[in-house]
Structures are given as structure tokens and as C-alpha cells.
Design a protein around this nucleic acid. Structure first.
Lengths: 207, 207
DNA sequence: AAATTAAATAAACACTTGTTCATTTAAATC
DNA sequence: GATTTAAATGAACAAGTGTTTATTTAATTT
């Protein structure tokens, strides 16, 4: 046998990325063989190399596409002018995106060390761009005197870690819906900068 | 050649664990070969099998020992009776431990999926015990009316993610000392439950 | 001091790894 | 409709995988 009836290059390439995404997310890049990927696509190993020059390039393709996607989606968000509003938008965006694309997010975090130097620094640049956006919001709020922050860089990383952590426990169909989780995280993140909604009711103490 | 002069089994076993820890932390369990481990120890591959029955058992040994260690150290901490004090102690403990043993912590998180079913559930049980401790503190504070918490389980996971995130950016000799980081995190975590020290000065608004 | 046990080497085991290549067949182009 | 290009197969490549084994030597026990 040879070329399969109905086979089209671009579609096969997409299928490879999709199956590799799932396999890498479940078992890790290093633990997945090219033959496993091919099998998941219903192909022989050799066929992969019509679409990707190396196994590494599949990982790079996945991570690069994800970071581009993330940054584009972030850029498409509607940020309000007041810092608290902007931080809320950022939080909702991050949580929603991470709940919607858990495998992409997971790989982007877990497989960084398996990227060769050049792809690594490319992906890291995009990552840092995302983090810089949050730091900007925090600094604005701090300058405006509405956020109470000890240390902006540490607080930014803490907020990102806190939010990204949703992927370690959230499973579709669980106790809470995505919207409920989003609301909880908005509150948590605003609390971190001293603006918790539920942290205010000390009225009895004042009265 | 054969048995090396001065070689003692228990010490070699420790050396294997130490080198494997470093290699697994840097490249990941699946990406490290038994020959690499042996070489780092100044041994031939076969010698490993005098001390560990499988490569998997080395990973299991590392993760199991780490979790035992973590829980013992936690149990040795002096928890105060008031919830805010207890949460502060927990936070200081977690940050300090994670800064002191970054490789152990990193592996315990990253390599869970590479454990076979039995070791996996053993390690997961210890992990859940640790998380349960934090949930207990949060629930106590909520019941006492001193913590403002929307959802205890989500808040607990958020706090753990936030704190553990310190390992993604902290490097020895950086801008902040371990003690400074500890202080910042105490403040961050207390903020999350509505008790931020810096989050109170709204006196002008009241006056 | 002799016998036993522990810890190492060196070589081999069967199998898997990522990648390449000649070949075949389908789709696209002329 | 013939030619070229694209996409697949299947076999092979050399290197690397975790693990086992026979053997040697050092440490420990008797």
C-alpha cells in the first residue's frame, strides 16, 4: 500500500498535532514515541516525516501555536481603564482560557525543558510577554493607590501560579461550573491586591 | 575490575538517589537513562541493580521519601490555636521547605504521572494528607468567623498553587532573600482569606 | 586465616528509539 | 489523459533502552 485514498497533507498534519497534544499531555514528551503518535493517527512512522522534520518540531509547533493563540486572545480582550476592572478582565480571561484548553496549557508549562535552546527562548519570550501584561496592570493599580502590593513581580507570579493551578484540580463535570470557578477566582485575585469583595464586611466592628 | 576499594552499599545507594534526584529534576524521569545515572555515580549500569530493582523504584524512593519528610516536618511545626496564626505558620513552613528543597518538590509534582499505579496512589495519599491539613485550618478560620472564604477547597488549592509557584522563579542569590520572600508570602496568603496587613488602611475613607 | 557475603565490572539480552529511504499509489497540474 | 507532485507504506538504520548474568574483588563474618 501507499498513499491512502482521500488523504490530504494539511489535514494529516493537523491530526498529528492533535494526537501528539493528547499523548504529550498524558504521558509527557519524552515518554511518547513517534510510533505511538503515528499509531494514534492511523499511520506508519515514516508518514510523520512528510509533515514534520523531527519529533521536536511537533512539540515546538504545539507550544508555539499555543502561546501565539494565548497572546492573541489576550490582546482581543476588552480591558477597562481602572486597574481593578483590568485585573478582573485578566483573571476571567486566564481562568476561562485555562479551563478551555487544559492540554495546551499543561504542555506549555511541563515541556519547556524538553525544547532545544532556540525554540525554548522563543517560547519563553512569549511567556514573559504574558507575564509583563499582568505586572503592568499591578503597577498601574499600585501607582493609582487602589492596589495594596508589597512586591509587584512576586505578586504577579503568585497570581499567575494561583490561577494556573486551576488545571491541577479542575475536571469537566465536577462540583463547580466554569462560571462559578471564574467568580471565585476573581474574588481570590482581587483579595491578593487588597480588594476582596467578601473581605469588607467589618461594618459591625465600625458601628 | 570488580568491587571497588572502600565501597559500601548504603552509601552508594544514597549517592544514586542524590544523582538521580538532580538528573530527574533537570531533564525529567523519562528523559534520563539508567546509564546516565550510573555515570553520574561513577558506576557501570549493572551496579545500580545491586541497590534498586528497577529504575522506577529509584523514582518511587525519591518521591516517597520526600513526602514522608514533608509531612514529618509539618507535624513538627508549632501551630498556634488561632486560625490566622496557624495559617501563618503553615505558609512560612511551606515557603521555607520549598525554597530549601526545590528539586525534591519539583520532582514530586512533575513526575507523578510516571509512577506506576501502586506507588502513585501511595504518594497521592500523602499529598492529600498535606492538602487536608490546610483545608482544616481554613475551615477553622471560617467557622470562627475570622477568615472570609467563598469556597474552602478551591481556596486551599489556590493557596497551595500560589505558594508552590515560588519554585518556578526563585533562584538562590536572587533579588530577595528567603526570609523576605517568606514575609511577602505570609502577607499574600493572609490577604487571600481577607486578612491582609497592607489591605486595611482605608482609614481616610472612614474618617 | 578461611569462608561467606556484598558490591562492583563487563558483556550480553531482547527490544525500542528517532530517522531515512526506496517504492507505491493517489491527487493535482498541465 | 499523461505527467508531476504529494502522501502513504514497509523495511531498514545505527544507536540507545532497561535489565540480567557470569565473574571478580573487597569487606565481613566465623
Amino acid at each position: 500500500m501507499a498513499r491512502t485514498a482521500g488523504s490530504i497533507g494539511t489535514e494529516t498534519a493537523k491530526r498529528v498535532l492533535k494526537e501528539a497534544l493528547s499523548l504529550f499531555a498524558h504521558h509527557g514528551y519524552a515518554a511518547v514515541s513517534t510510533r505511538q503518535i503515528a499509531k494514534a493517527c492511523g499511520l506508519q512512522v515514516g508518514a510523520l516525516y512528510n509533515h514534520f522534520p523531527t519529533k521536536q518540531s511537533i512539540l515546538h509547533g504545539l507550544m508555539s501555536a499555543h502561546m501565539q493563540d494565548l497572546l492573541e486572545a489576550l490582546a482581543g480582550s476588552n480591558f477597562s481603564n481602572d486597574p481593578a476592572g483590568a485585573l478582573e478582565v485578566f483573571t476571567r480571561f486566564h481562568i476561562r482560557y485555562h479551563i478551555d484548553k487544559p492540554e495546551e496549557v499543561f504542555i506549555a508549562y511541563m515541556e519547556l525543558r524538553n525544547l532545544e535552546p532556540e525554540p525554548y527562548s522563543e517560547v519563553m519570550k512569549l511567556r514573559q510577554q504574558y507575564e509583563r501584561t499582568l505586572r503592568g496592570i499591578l503597577r498601574d493599580g499600585q501607582a493609582a493607590g487602589v492596589f495594596k502590593i508589597d512586591d509587584v513581580p512576586v505578586t504577579a507570579m503568585s497570581i499567575i501560579s494561583m490561577m494556573t493551578g486551576v488545571n491541577t484540580w479542575y475536571r469537566y463535570g465536577g462540583r463547580l461550573s466554569a462560571s462559578e470557578i471564574e467568580e471565585i477566582y476573581v474574588n481570590l485575585v482581587l483579595s491578593v491586591v487588597g480588594l476582596g469583595k467578601t473581605a469588607t464586611p467589618k461594618l459591625e466592628e465600625i458601628a
